[in-house]
């Protein structure tokens, strides 16, 4: 029962659940370019998009952006509130990329003073045409003030996402958002993933996910890389001992020594009190970088020595 989809799209299946008003989103490995004219499979793509969407929706909820996510319900499954989806895609552009240069003649990479917002009607038979506020009103889809509210909401979401991806070493070129009605108000739905965003890796500038696919790449790494950039996995521990230099007066050591002796530990000859710092370090660091951390911040070379313990 539960695996007979309610609906199936090009990249996702909507599966029923036992809870009324809740459905499961199943993320497929298919990639669809040029509005479905080119469809192919990249293994692991579905799981990657589910994982990134999960993280993004959680983050957005913390920023007060209502969305349909309930929880992760499987490897490439998200349990979500069932929305009455608007047949509209809202795309926010931070700079000219993707289809923009070709469509409108922008210099690729041109940065806009304010991000651009575009509305597209979801209709493959019409090639998902760009629509104006007037179109949306005339089609009876949205009132003008609702369009404005969606626009400002999309801009706000884009702002949050730009910072969020940036903190994970990802540059966000554009994001496609879809909204739906839950009760009487609009809620962010669908997915926010490397398949709906155009993104690049900050270091090296390599395209990621859909952007890489648009450039003809088909290897699983283009999606998997986004997941690993977003992953907050624990690194390896390094230990730094900072202690007063020989010959420097150490009031803490002196007082501690007196206290130990008062307690009857007369064998104590000297005490020096320093700091013991445990760092968790991501892959790709080096002893040289640790040395630099010590020199620049962790120790004060005027009064302190340091020692690093790290298996590199």
């Amino acid at each position: 029962m539960a695996d007979v989809p309610l609906r199936e799209g090009k990249t996702k299946r909507l599966l029923p659940t036992e809870v009324p008003g809740r459905i499961n989103l199943y993320f497929k490995d298919e990639v669809s370019l040029q509005n479905g004219k080119s469809i192919f499979t990249i293994p692991g793509k579905g799981a990657a998009c589910a994982q990134v969407s999960l993280q993004v929706f959680r983050f957005l909820a913390q920023r007060g952006v209502e969305n349909h996510l309930v929880k992760e319900s499987g490897d490439r499954l998200l349990l979500v509130d069932e929305l009455e989806m608007l047949p509209i895609e809202v795309v926010v552009w931070n700079f000219a990329c993707g289809s923009l240069p070709e469509r409108l003649g922008f210099e690729p990479g041109a940065v806009f003073r304010e991000p651009l917002v575009e509305f597209f009607l979801k209709d493959d038979s019409k090639d998902d045409p760009l629509v104006t506020v007037e179109h949306l009103e005339a089609l009876g889809l949205l009132r003008r003030e609702e369009v404005e509210a969606l626009r400002s909401r999309a801009l706000k979401i884009n702002g949050f996402l730009r910072d969020y991806f940036d903190s994970h070493g990802i540059i966000l070129g554009s994001v496609k958002l879809e909204f739906g009605k839950l009760g009487d108000h609009f809620v962010l739905g669908d997915e926010v993933s490397p398949d709906t965003c155009l993104m690049w890796e900050k270091e090296g500038g390599k395209p990621l996910g859909r952007m890489a696919a648009l450039e003809g790449r088909r290897e699983p790494e283009i999606y998997a890389r986004v997941v690993s950039l977003m992953e907050e996995k624990p690194g390896k521990e390094a230990y730094v001992y900072v202690r007063p230099k020989q010959g420097i007066m150490d009031p803490q050591g002196q007082v501690t020594m007196r206290a130990l002796r008062d307690l009857g530990f007369s064998e104590v000859e000297d005490v020096r009190v320093g700091r013991y710092i445990i760092l968790r370090i991501r892959e790709g660091s080096s002893r040289e970088r640790l040395e630099e951390m010590c020199r620049r911040l962790l120790a004060n070379p005027v009064i302190e020595d340091y020692e690093i313990r790290w298996d590199d």
Partner: peptide, 17 residues
């Protein structure tokens, strides 16, 4: 200022702690 090297020297804990 001391940490930044704009003035020489460093600060230790007060003797009394």
């Amino acid at each position: 200022l001391l940490e930044a090297g704009l003035l020489p020297g460093a600060m230790l804990w007060n003797e009394s702690l």
